[in-house]
Design a protein around this nucleic acid. Sequence first.
DNA 1: AGTCAAATTAACTTGTTAGTTAATTTAGTT
DNA 2: AACTAAATTAACTAACAAGTTAATTTGACT
Lengths: 240, 240
Amino acid sequence: MGRRILEVDTCMELVVKSSARGRRSSTARTARNPEATKTQILDAAEEEFARYGLAGARTEPIAANTGVTKAMIHYYFGTKEELYQAVLKRQAALFHNAVEQIDVSDLSPEAALKKFLRLAVDYENTQPYHGKVLLHEAMTNEGKYFKLTGWEVPIGLGAAVLQRGVDEGCFRPLDPWLTMVHIMGVMSFYFNAANNLKQLEPLSDCQSPEAIENYADSAIAFVLAGVLKHSGPSHSMALE
Amino acid sequence: MGRRILEVDTCMELVVKSSARGRRSSTARTARNPEATKTQILDAAEEEFARYGLAGARTEPIAANTGVTKAMIHYYFGTKEELYQAVLKRQAALFHNAVEQIDVSDLSPEAALKKFLRLAVDYENTQPYHGKVLLHEAMTNEGKYFKLTGWEVPIGLGAAVLQRGVDEGCFRPLDPWLTMVHIMGVMSFYFNAANNLKQLEPLSDCQSPEAIENYADSAIAFVLAGVLKHSGPSHSMALE
DNA sequence: AGTCAAATTAACTTGTTAGTTAATTTAGTT
DNA sequence: AACTAAATTAACTAACAAGTTAATTTGACT
């Protein structure tokens, strides 16, 4: 029924998709561009997985946000699950790269921790899907692919800084790994729960840039207070 | 075909389910029991929604875990989305009840906060689906039904305790609502991310009761350190 | 022991979704 | 300008999932 008309419709849709919706990336794309296509698929997939997790994600909206047919997903990435793994791997590479940038070896534990915390906030803020995909991985996928993310590296670095602070006596006695978990909780919850938090009157503005900066200051102060040794009566706990 | 045999099968399944799997509740259930059926549906639905969120959840596994037909879900609760709302409402009622039990009005801010933190850990531990459903609500459902949970009450109570601590000078200057968010992050992340965390060598045992008790102590100490005033006159370290 | 309404089921319908396939388009090469 | 292989599409299939319905079972109350 109406084959010619269908073709015209399709043409117009394509125009709409590549101009009005403006999904197709800035990298030159006259018509075909496999690298750009793959990137767009990963971008759209990351957003979908961040919202719904592996099980809840649908491939059709991913394709729709990409301006390319659903079959392209399978052409380049195989199954939905393999696409998911590709998203995790790309996130891991990007994150690993960001962590590598910072050198903390000749900073005091306190300064080093502050640097880490700043990176953590900025990363959550600029890469809003990273943490959400990971949380879904834990909640809906039993952490099956968590190892693909290489997170043991940054957590280990953080724990080492904490341990150094304890050893040097500027941090209170604490379990460095558990404390890293507490810190990750502080650094991620605000972003992951924002859609709930914004419905609490005092936090209704929590997604504005100013509110986020305000949160960042508050969170960093909270964590520092949580690990620094309370001054006053001197603890003679040099060694444990 | 084999009506009698089918009846026998069904019977046996019921027996298996009510003893071995122990789903059918303790309230007497010879054959029909609408209240027990509704409870079982809510139980199974809560588990499914906690894992997959509203969008990702399937009604068939809910029915399968219930020992009752999928049609019963619609008979008692309507659509999947209405069932989801019913789960949220039941969680809210249970949680509200738990929060009501504690009276904090004649405790010091520090003691009051400790009491809240203990309740928070215990609740996450004994009601493992509560926090996960809420997080999914934020991440996959844009917090559409968050208000059904009545969480502004306990958060407001906590913020009031923090404000009292600031006013009385035992807590450092802090934003009580943001600090409540930090605290919620600390109190929930360990449980929500456990499936990831357990794959980190030092946390491989993180789900055992001893590990959870250990985490609880560490988390409470971290939060108290995070809010208490660092300098000043001698602390009455009643803790520990 | 029979009637009635609530509880429950099996089987169905209708819409979705992951993945496939065959045909078509295009860029680069000869 | 014809050839080729990669890129891309439209249309399809088979499985799944939400919700419906008509029939059946059961307990309670005559």
